[in-house]
């Protein structure tokens, strides 16, 4: 009885802040303004502008995820091969930006990348050609990679750090070279971390609207921006909810995939 009582606050929390909002999203998503059932809001995704925003979102998220993976995996390998006291410091360096507000970090990039911003100031001082990527998809990818990289680094580092040194020594002992060990031992054993990292980068990147608003200007619409505008500007909660449900399907597919590949939850962040 006592133990059940302890779970009450969490139960309340999940009902009030997870289940009810989710239910409302589904309610709005499947009804029209008169309250009648409709699939229109869901099918609205097939409209050209929505499709374009969705595909762009998927494309940019995928590119960002791949870049994050390409940066994080070698880093994880380097960190795990280092002495313990040193890698703690480097891990902190990577987590440090996370202590700053997400909005502020992204705003900072806006200032840095602006046509007359800090980076271009330095470039023109050095008589180098200026960098004009603000308000382009490149800037959005940069923002995504910068903001979400720690979410890739941590699970990968964790899964790599969990590999017993003796397992690698055993592979060496059996005659395997470094590349062979990476391919046949380290990569498969850290796979849960990779899957977890991909999920943790891909899902927020797919749904972000802040990064695209701040770094992509108003011209580049991601699916997150479309949904946000439906709620805030068009006040069309029905369409916004419908599109959210479609987006949720992509996220669920991703989650299911990661659950299949990471059965034991080994790649968890903590």
């Amino acid at each position: 009885m006592n133990k059940k009582m302890l779970s009450l606050p969490y139960l309340f929390w999940s009902i009030a802040f997870i289940l009810i909002p989710l239910g409302m999203i589904f309610f709005y998503g499947f009804t029209d303004k008169t309250g009648a059932f409709t699939l229109e809001n869901i099918l609205a995704i097939s409209q050209a502008e929505h499709m374009k925003a969705l595909w762009l979102s998927i494309l940019l998220s995928l590119i960002s995820t791949i870049i994050c993976l390409a940066l994080a995996y070698p880093l994880g390998l380097i960190l795990t091969s280092m002495e313990v006291n040193q890698n703690g410091f480097i891990i902190v360096l990577f987590i440090l930006p996370m202590w700053m507000n997400f909005l502020l970090r992204t705003l900072a990039w806006q200032t840095l990348l602006e046509k007359t911003g800090v980076i271009n100031g330095i470039l023109s001082f050095l008589h180098l050609p200026s960098l004009n990527i603000i308000n382009t998809p490149y800037a959005i990818v940069l923002g995504m990679v910068y903001n979400f990289l720690p979410f890739m680094v941590l699970p990968i580092y964790n899964s790599l750090a969990k590999i017993d040194r003796n397992v690698i020594n055993a592979a060496k002992d059996l005659g395997a070279g470094n590349l062979y060990i990476l391919k046949r031992i380290i990569l498969p054993l850290s796979f849960p971390g990779i899957v977890s990292g991909i999920t943790m980068v891909f899902v927020p990147a797919l749904t972000t609207f802040v990064i695209s608003t701040l770094l992509g200007g108003s011209k580049i619409l991601l699916i997150g921006n479309v949904i946000e505008q439906e709620f805030t500007q068009a006040s069309n909660w029905y369409l916004g909810s419908g599109l959210s449900i479609v987006l949720m399907v992509f996220i669920i597919i991703n989650m299911v995939l990661s659950a299949i590949f990471d059965k034991d939850g080994e790649g968890g962040l903590l």
Partner: peptide
């Protein structure tokens, strides 16, 4: 180690947990 004609049996076995027994032995 990978160039030496000797093999080690480690304290905590150090088996490759992602492989079957046959794959372990075949490594």
């Amino acid at each position: 180690p990978n160039k030496r004609q000797l093999n080690t049996v480690f304290q905590k076995y150090a088996l490759f947990t992602h492989m079957s027994i046959a794959e372990n032995i075949a490594f």
